[in-house]
């Protein structure tokens, strides 16, 4: 779009396209518009106060289930655990088959086959983290191999991590190139680019990383691995959505967004949906363009839905912990 890749010394490198006047709404990669922290946080605080009652609440919560990438990314993950989670993704609440299914299951590469098998025919996608998740600090060849193998195992979506060290050192070309090569390695799989915003230090850096992630070929940009605090916040989500908006204004291409880590309650999920609704509008209120990366969130959403259905507050133990 704004960047074209040229070959130099056998490696992909970058050069800015000339005459970039497609839209001044979209500023080229290395000079994204600045972000004002105070005003961003004021805006999301105001959106978080939207009052969602009855039908709006139920519809929002049901939508949030369909947007969930139900996630387990632990060293102790086993096929049994993954199968249980897959089952939950397909049938979030046995007593109400109208709920769900979730958008995807998100696992480590070694669990992709198990998940793929468990989810066969359900329409639930398998997402795999790759690229030496969560730090990304391995040689690029290993990271690409990680991606290719996950895709070979059957992953529909790849959640990669960017090299935050390179990002913070100002080596944006390296960050870009790794994303672009990862995208190539994905083949038909969709690519989500994890910025790990909690390590980037400022909204300006989040904005810049978002620009790079989009320009280098990400289909989605994603806040966090879930392994670093702070993970997803409404503030970084807004800044990322604004980047997506500018890209849309400039190109018409719709990039997806995935907050991950730290979204634990139904109330939070609704707040995220409000931010999406009032920043990007109807088109993004869809699992194709918005996902929640979460594990604990689903049960809280289910609990709130049951509360709305029955009128009574629910107990946590009434919901299966998978």
């Amino acid at each position: 779009m704004y960047l074209r890749r040229v070959k130099s010394n056998g490696h992909d490198s970058l050069a800015r396209a000339n005459g970039d006047s497609v839209s001044r709404a979209y500023t080229p990669l290395f000079a994204p518009p600045p972000v004002d922290q105070v005003a961003v946080e004021e805006r999301v605080a105001s959106l978080a106060k939207r009052s969602l009652k009855k039908g709006a609440k139920v519809a929002g919560l049901k939508l949030s289930i369909r947007m969930m990438d139900l996630t387990t990314l632990e060293g102790k993950d086993t096929p049994g655990k993954v199968r249980a989670l897959c089952n939950k993704a397909m049938h979030p609440l046995d007593s109400d088959p109208s709920l769900g299914p979730c958008a995807a299951i998100c696992v480590y590469p070694n669990m992709v086959k198990v998940a793929k098998e468990a989810l066969r025919g359900s329409g639930v996608f398998v997402a795999s983290v790759a690229t030496a998740f969560p730090s990304g600090l391995s040689p690029i060849e290993i990271k690409l191999d990680d991606v290719r193998r996950a895709v070979d195992f059957g992953a529909d979506e790849i959640d990669m991590v960017i090299d935050r060290g390179a990002m913070l050192m100002g080596d944006y070309a390296k960050v870009f190139d790794e994303i672009a090569r990862t995208k190539d390695a994905c083949g038909k799989a969709h690519l989500k680019v994890i910025l790990e915003t909690g390590e980037l230090g400022s909204y300006d850096m989040v904005r810049k990383a978002s620009e790079i992630g989009i320009a280098a070929g990400g289909d989605f940009i994603k806040t966090s691995t879930g392994k670093v605090q702070p993970a997803a916040t409404l503030g970084v989500t807004l800044v990322m959505l604004e980047t997506i908006r500018d890209h849309y204004y400039a190109t018409g291409r719709k990039i997806g967004m995935k907050p991950a880590g730290g979204v634990r309650t139904a109330k939070q999920a609704l707040q995220y949906l409000v931010v999406v609704k009032e920043t990007l509008g109807d088109a993004w209120l869809d699992p194709d363009l918005f996902r929640f990366g979460a594990s604990a969130l689903l049960n809280d959403v289910l609990m709130q839905l049951e509360k709305e259905r029955t009128g009574n507050y629910q107990a946590a133990e009434d919901f299966s912990k998978d």
Partner: peptide, 19 residues
């Protein structure tokens, strides 16, 4: 792309309405 994107506007419709 320039031509087609100039008039792109976001759709703030009724996909999810607040009660």
């Amino acid at each position: 792309a320039q031509k087609s994107t100039k008039d792109l506007a976001l759709d703030f419709g009724r996909a999810w309405e607040y009660a």
